[in-house]
Computed example of a mutant assay.
Amino acid sequence: MSELRAAIRAEVAALAPLDALEEEHQQATLAWIDSGAELWRRIKPATPAVHLATYFALIDAEGILLVDHKNAGLWLPTGGHVDPGEHPREAVARELFEELGVRHLPAPTLLTRTQVDAHAASHLDVTLWYALPVARSLPLHYDQAEFHEARWFDFDQLPFADSDPHLGRFAAKLDKIRA
């Protein structure tokens, strides 16, 4: 096993699952990593059909910053696909700076596997979710080519119906961690 693959495996294995679904996602992801399959998307939008992605949610005590993603048509945490040969934490650092002009490097909080059916190219995003505690006063410069807007949502006002299907589980895990 390559050093990078082993580091990604260790990142996934270190997560303490919130629930049975995250435990299932963790075991499936570890088996996928161990299989030797390609981990990174090589051709947009969906080759290979299973590949690594990240979300990095800026959070404070009251809520989460979400972006109105133009392509997805959803309110999502900022994030992106992991580039070939890149560790997910490196992707977080790169994307966070590209999308919001912020530099920070956290540990992952949640792991999900989400079937994405977009642009007639179905694929599975294996996503490590990272939580980045920041002050709402932090100046942000979001990527206007990719997002309509960026907005803070209080935890009790999250747009679950118009977001990633795992956003509620992410908020629950954050709540559990903070308790």
Rank of each mutant, 00 (worst) to 15 (best):
A91G: 11
T127P: 07
G79V: 02
L140A: 00
L74G: 00
V134T: 11
L124A: 10
D83T: 04
G101R: 10
D83V: 05
P108D: 05
R94H: 14
R103H: 14
P106T: 09
H87R: 12
L124F: 08
H69E: 08
N71Y: 02
D117T: 01
R89G: 04
A120L: 13
E95H: 13
F97G: 12
D83M: 11
K70T: 01
P77F: 04
T127N: 13
F97R: 14
L140H: 02
L105Y: 07
V134M: 09
S137Y: 01
V102C: 03
A93W: 06
G101D: 15
L105S: 14
R103K: 13
D143R: 15
A145C: 04
L110T: 01
E98T: 04
L110I: 08
P108L: 07
A135K: 12
A93E: 10
V116N: 00
H119P: 03
D143C: 15
H81P: 02
L132T: 11
A131L: 14
H119K: 03
T78G: 08
E95I: 00
P133Q: 15
V102H: 06
P133R: 14
S137T: 12
D125K: 01
P106A: 06
E90K: 03
V82C: 10
L138E: 01
L128K: 06
R89Q: 04
G73P: 06
Y130F: 15
V102G: 00
R136M: 07
G73C: 07
A145T: 12
H69F: 01
H119D: 00
R89K: 12
T127E: 11
A135G: 07
L124T: 13
G101H: 14
G73M: 01
H81N: 15
L124I: 15
N71S: 11
R89V: 05
P106C: 11
P139F: 08
Q144C: 10
H141G: 14
R113Q: 11
P88T: 11
S137I: 06
L128A: 05
A135T: 11
E99W: 11
H81A: 08
A93G: 00
R103Y: 15
P88S: 09
F97N: 12
D68I: 06
P106V: 10
E99I: 04
A131Q: 09
F97S: 12
A120K: 05
L132A: 09
G85I: 13
T114S: 02
L74H: 07
Y142E: 11
P77N: 05
Y142T: 09
L128Q: 04
G73F: 07
V116Q: 01
L111N: 03
K70A: 09
T114V: 07
H87M: 10
D125G: 05
L138N: 01
H87Q: 13
L110M: 10
Q144V: 14
A91Q: 05
A91N: 09
L124R: 13
H81D: 12
L111D: 09
D117G: 04
V102M: 03
P108C: 03
L105R: 15
P139L: 06
T109N: 02
A135H: 13
E95F: 07
H104T: 05
H87F: 12
R94W: 07
V102K: 03
N71E: 06
A107D: 09
L132N: 07
